[in-house]
Design a protein around this nucleic acid. Sequence first.
DNA 1: TCAACTATACAACAATTATTGAAATATAAA
DNA 2: TTTATATTTCAATAATTGTTGTATAGTTGA
Lengths: 112, 112
Amino acid sequence: MDKQIATTLFESLASGIRLDIFRLLVKHAPTGLVAGEIAAELTLPPTNLSFHLKAMTHADLLNVTQEGRYQRYRANLSVMQALVDYLTAECCAGHPEHCFDAGEASACCHKD
Amino acid sequence: MDKQIATTLFESLASGIRLDIFRLLVKHAPTGLVAGEIAAELTLPPTNLSFHLKAMTHADLLNVTQEGRYQRYRANLSVMQALVDYLTAECCAGHPEHCFDAGEASACCHKD
DNA sequence: TCAACTATACAACAATTATTGAAATATAAA
DNA sequence: TTTATATTTCAATAATTGTTGTATAGTTGA
């Protein structure tokens, strides 16, 4: 993952609304939710929701499929995993001893 | 970590400049760098750098200590670790089987 | 104390992002 | 085909964030 992609993903998560959307869709994985269900759950005006959904989809954080007149959104968990790996690499890069306490060192095994 | 803190951290990372600053300081951990060294390395006007350093420090992503007339900045690696944990929890919450492929499942051991 | 140096605070402005309502598109149902 | 439903696009505006120069505060060493 390059810096540009990481920055875009962080932007996507740097809003309470978008973080709520993502967490809601993780909770409903792998089924996902249609736009109206998300709007109802988060009580957002549809245009505002659409604005954020579009941004997140463009950032590849969400996937969307059409179901008749509905749009079903799903969290893209593999991108989230890649972001966690990127962040772990940034965090540990050359300095795992400073990033993880001794007791937790064994928990850091994403970069095997 | 609550949502508000996570959002602030994502905001801190959602800028190319701030991501560069953080990565530079991770590379120089645990010594850190003084503001002038960061400005020289990233060729930024001092006021602009100061703006971003202040935001990152306020978000607790950086620590700062005074050294005479210099201000030394260090990456706060434990906060980064907490963010990775938060993101992993968001990613896996209730659905580890969808987040990690079978072959990599054993690599997910942050939430033990 | 004085001059040089480091960095931040402030203020003005530029640029980007967020929010909303109205209109448009497309599907479904009557 | 007409009407209703779901969602998006567009345009206007509000709100936030980023950038720059100048001025200020604090530190050092002569």
